[in-house]
Design a protein around this nucleic acid. Structure first.
Length: 477
RNA sequence: CGGGGUGUAGCGCAGUUGGUAGCGCACCGCGUUUGGGACGCGGGGGUCGGCGGUUCGAGUCCGCCCACCCCGACCA
């Protein structure tokens, strides 16, 4: 709980971000540098996110399982680009039970290797395919610069790992999951995202191709919000994941992996939040409606609380909280729940008892404009409608903001300027030298090559060579 | 790992020429309050980052160490 005003987003965006998380009690710093504690309010949000994703995975035939935290070092070394990509950020266990281990164990930075090892044992025949498994857990990467939710040394996520008989099926799976991520982001988190393929320089270590959904934060920086990888036969060959096909030929599998993490919470905070604090999308909000009772004395209290209980019963379909704390004023509570981003607030006081009304304030419309007095009767329908309206409104607002800050650019000078305060969409020849030049000179990297392309050809914004695809350039988290 | 900075109550800070540690917020109790961040009174809380040295005496001076933060190369 806070006693002072939050820094505004325009005066110090990153301090605003940190303060919102701490004051809303989403997370806190752990005793180990770079690690975070997800507090109950933040975890409740994550549980709602998990439910939305998990349902989508199960609907498309996936099952959950659990694989070990510790992985033999030699496993990571089996896939060359994989180990090169992850080596600098591995946490390694060298001692166990007081004895130096014969082989060091790495704390998983991701689980392709150990899961690949198991798949090699489980898959024998084309009849065993596809294997569609997801795991909810956490992984550790020894990051140098950390930020709550955006980049912590341990983070929570889901990682899906699938094995298929053909490259077409693997690609289809990769893109199906990308669609699921986009659908979840748009329809549950109210975050408009752009689907696309990562450049070769930006792809996952060990993948043939990586795909991502990219979201624009309130400061216009980009946040990669989920990724889906087509691993080709790289891991299948490294771990000998093989099957006999219908003609009795031994074949390597085609595998995929994909993940969305608690980083997505950071995306929600930075997409919707305002200078008062969080604004949570109703579908994911741990508390959708909060009731603040107002009274001066015991007599008023009992009258008010009777109405509060009545309203609570009426609204049983929603995730609802009655703020019955004593010792803090209603004004304090308003600010507190605004900080925590609860979509709707009901204030019930003596006047409402008399008039059969409640004061209803919507979080997405700050101040007096968002507040109205409505009858207690028919409140459930009104609340339901409003929550949907807020959900849609958040998406519309974020979409408008994003579109205002994406500029199609044709020349390099404009590109340099645009990426200072927005994203640039431009033709790119695909040459890594061109994206490196942009990164070095502007700090903007390629985010992805959007799935939706205008078609035709253009000239690379950097070198002028013929280009057949457009790419997004942006400064990223 | 390079460059810069900071360590005193949970947080933010003050602490003079060395003299035995204080302020605001938060927290606890009581009372008055309560429709947009209330107020009064009374409390609790510290090996002053660590170790060593100088000194009758060190938060303060000296040495070494440690931790953390910010800025650059890597990243869900």
């Amino acid at each position: 709980m806070a006693d002072e005003k939050l820094p505004t987003r325009s005066e110090n965006y990153s301090e605003w971000y940190n303060q919102v998380i701490l004051r809303a009690e989403m997370a806190d710093y752990a005793p180990v540098r770079g690690c975070m504690v997800v507090r109950p309010y933040g975890w409740a949000l994550w549980e709602n996110m998990q439910a939305g994703l998990d349902r989508r995975f199960k609907d498309t035939g996936h099952q959950n399982a659990a694989f070990p935290l510790l992985i033999p070092m030699s496993f990571l070394e089996k896939e060359k680009s994989h180990v090169q990509g992850f080596a600098p950020e591995l946490a390694v266990v060298t001692v166990g039970g007081g004895e130096t281990l014969e082989e060091p164990l790495v704390v998983r930075p991701t689980s392709e290797t150990v899961i690949g090892y198991m798949y090699a044992r489980w898959i024998k025949s084309w009849r065993d395919l596809p294997v569609l498994i997801n795991q909810w857990g956490s992984v550790v990467r020894w990051e140098m610069r950390t930020r709550l939710f955006l980049r912590t040394m341990e983070f929570f996520w889901q990682e899906g790992h699938t094995a298929h008989a053909t490259p077409e099926e693997a690609l289809e799976e990769t893109l199906r999951i990308l669609d699921i991520y986009a659908d979840f982001a748009i329809n549950e988190a109210a975050i408009p995202v752009i689907k696309g393929r990562k450049s070769q320089a930006e792809k996952f270590a060990g993948a043939v191709n990586s795909y991502s959904i990219e979201a624009m934060m309130g400061d216009t920086r980009a946040l990669q919000s989920a990724t889906s990888h087509d691993l080709g036969q790289n891991f299948a060959k490294a771990f000998e994941i093989q099957y006999l096909d219908q003609t009795n030929q031994l074949q390597y599998c085609w595998t995929t992996s994909w993940g969305m993490s608690t980083r997505m919470i950071g995306a929600i905070i930075m997409t919707h939040g305002d200078d008062q604090g969080l604004i949570l999308p109703p579908r994911l909000a741990p508390i959708q409606v909060v009731i603040v009772p107002i009274y001066k004395n015991d007599e008023e209290r009992s009258k008010v609380m009777a109405v509060v209980e009545n309203v609570r019963a009426q609204l049983s379909a929603f995730r609802l909280k009655v703020d019955d704390r004593t010792g803090v004023t209603p004004g304090f509570k308003y600010n507190d729940w605004e900080m925590r981003g609860v979509p709707l607030r009901l204030e019930i006081g003596p006047k409402d008892v008399e008039k059969g009304s409640v004061a209803l304030a919507r979080r997405d419309v700050p101040g007096r404009e968002g507040k109205s007095f409505v009858p207690q009767e028919g409140l459930a329908a009104r609340v339901g409608d409003l929550l949907e309206e807020i959900q849609a409104g958040l998406l519309a607002r974020a979409t408008a903001f994003r579109d205002e800050h994406i500029t199609e650019v044709a020349d390099y000078d404009t590109l340099r300027e645009v990426v200072q305060n927005g994203w640039a969409r431009a033709w790119w020849c695909g040459n890594p030298a061109c994206e490196t030049k942009v990164k070095d000179e502007t700090r903007a990297s390629t985010r992805n090559i959007p799935t939706e392309q205008p078609g035709g050809k253009g000239h690379c914004v950097v070198c002028g060579e013929t280009a057949s695809e457009q790419v997004l350039f942006a400064r990223a988290y």
